[in-house]
Design a protein around this nucleic acid. Sequence first.
DNA 1: TGTACATCAGTGAACGCGCGTTCACTGATGTAC
DNA 2: TGTACATCAGTGAACGCGCGTTCACTGATGTAC
Lengths: 203, 203
Amino acid sequence: MSTRASATAPRGTYHHGDLKAALVAEAIKLVRIEGPNHLSLREVAANCKVSPSAAYHYFPDKDSLVSAIGDYCFQELARIQEEAISKVVGNSAKAAKARLRESGRSYFQWAKKDPNLFRLMFGGFCSINKTDEADQDPAYLVLVRVLDDLLTHGVITKAARQNAELAAWPAVHGATTLIIEGHIPEEAYEAVLDTIEAALGIK
Amino acid sequence: MSTRASATAPRGTYHHGDLKAALVAEAIKLVRIEGPNHLSLREVAANCKVSPSAAYHYFPDKDSLVSAIGDYCFQELARIQEEAISKVVGNSAKAAKARLRESGRSYFQWAKKDPNLFRLMFGGFCSINKTDEADQDPAYLVLVRVLDDLLTHGVITKAARQNAELAAWPAVHGATTLIIEGHIPEEAYEAVLDTIEAALGIK
DNA sequence: TGTACATCAGTGAACGCGCGTTCACTGATGTAC
DNA sequence: TGTACATCAGTGAACGCGCGTTCACTGATGTAC
């Protein structure tokens, strides 16, 4: 019996293996449940069966752990969207249009599934990496590709392609936020996607 | 000299006068500066030259103080929008169109001026009053009026009026959030307003 | 194959702090007579 | 006009808590010879 006998499920080994990843995973789990405020480094460490100070081998402070959560979430959102889009196969105009729709739906579904992670991402909790122009939000790059695809298939005009990101992302993001925070009903989401298509001149 | 000599600017009277309003005002000031997290009831009370427990004569707990801030902000946003819209006078189609634009601009300007209040309003900090269908977000009612006005002047069709709120609010809200959180540049805002007009079929 | 040693991951106790909330209280106010 | 008293706004001390962070440390690991 170790000195940490109070731990409900002792780790077994002295070294953890991949504590950094475990800390991030636990932190995500806690944010998901309790919200971006109420995240406690001590609680994260405790859930990893590790002393609070152990975290400081991997993160200089709590904020950088939060940023790590944010980074992970942005990647995960992009992954989810990729997955949703890739399910719509086909090289047709119709398929391209469906992929736009699915990219919007998957954005909302991600947020609906884990509103607290969504709040962390966009609620001013983590400062985004402005390191490089190329170092873009990966979910944004997914959108760019979907829109390029629409142009390629002649679903939208060159002129509409111009500011297409600005027709899609804000509307999708805003509708998602407003629904999640209870300002508009979930049923309204498809209608918002309609307005995006209208803005892009898709009939 | 009172027993609260440590207070930098003693209140003078034992009774405050309108402590409830003062608490809300101080709380807003603190949120504005330090963000919706980091709001402390004790600090609010201290800034009002009052003991922490005094606040409990007006608010059952901290959360209800936060909700009071939220209520105030929603009203204030509506007031700001009213003001901006009323500056565009005239009973013409052109004026009606300009009022739509101004309602969008003033929404963003409000958020830009006080991003932390905006975050409090829409970041899941205060639960909104779902007491009644009629008890709507006042800023939303401003939008409804502006859109009705567009229909009256024949700027948009009856069909476009149908889901016009869903074409405007999510886009405006999303663009505002994304700019404030650093995901898209401020310069893009006018282009977003363009896409709303496009969605509504305004040329 | 066995040993000495450098490396470094994790410990645990302590720091100082500010928090929300409670409680029995007291000072000021205003009203009834 | 003056006094007794009910009302209630604000006090201040205390509660128990969990937090982020620091520090000198020790246990485990793996590598060089």
